[in-house]
Amino acid sequence: MTDLAPVSPFDASPSAVGRIARRAPIDWTGIAFLTGLAVVILLPLVVTAVWAFAEVWRFPAIVPQRMGLGYWQETLSRTDVWQALWLSLSITTTVTVISAAICFPAAYAFARLDFPGRNMLFLAFLSVQAFPKFGLIIATATIFLTLNLIGTFWGVVLIQLVGTLLYMIWIPVSAFQGVDRRLEEAARDVGASPMRVFWSITLPQAAPTLFAAILITFVNTFYETDAAWLIGLPNVRTMPMVMIAFINNALEVQYGAVLFVFLWVPSFLLMLAARRVMGADAFAKGLGG
């Protein structure tokens, strides 16, 4: 970014600047980290992506014997894949919409309103974090057994919804708290009603973060496996369940790889957008850093 900074009028000629700049020390430590991380982080993903386009790749060849889109056609014409995709999308959409509808108002209340038991209730939400997640799911599943919710659409929606509560409340709480009170007060000052202030000032100011929270919830719910496995199977098979089946049953290796590329690229772009809005700090702060 500094490249764009204006050079002061006292600066020497461009050649002199170039001469100085070239002496900038090379960040060898950084390059070492970069190389290590590239191998460890990117290599697995690249290998998987190559598998998606490999029609024949027999051990021990370094590169596939034949590349092509054959498996794409085969994978994407499987009915179980499309069924799972639609099921996953409808579960995820339902969860996200309900979660936003009940959590955002609650987040606003926690951030801005004063009501009895506010701190205690907020702590109750945080305390969920004190339990190992899969243990909680087992405990909830026991309740679902008596309610006949195991293996049903709404059972999966409910358990996923609970999983989203914490994030859909704490991210928006900090978003609403982040809105400068003085902006709201200035609007009240020029004659806006409290409702008007909320719709015209508070909500637009918090909107990017709320949007990020929705994106994160959507993507995380889509790929959730623990709860979907325990509550959903065998009747409700979400997309990740189909992928796990592909992995476990050792069907054609490429099926998994194709789904990997097909599903992951859009979700990656969504998450990237979310993080751009939120910044790494917000993530860490919410986690207790």
Binding site: L113, F115, V128, T140, I159, V162, L165, I169
Partner: peptide, 24 residues
């Protein structure tokens, strides 16, 4: 604010009690 605050958080809190605290 006191009353509407409680009303606004009621649903998530109910869900939390029903599906987390009660099961635990």
């Amino acid at each position: 604010g006191r009353l509407s605050g409680l009303l606004l958080v009621a649903l998530p809190v109910a869900l939390l009690i029903w599906l987390v605290l009660w099961p635990v």
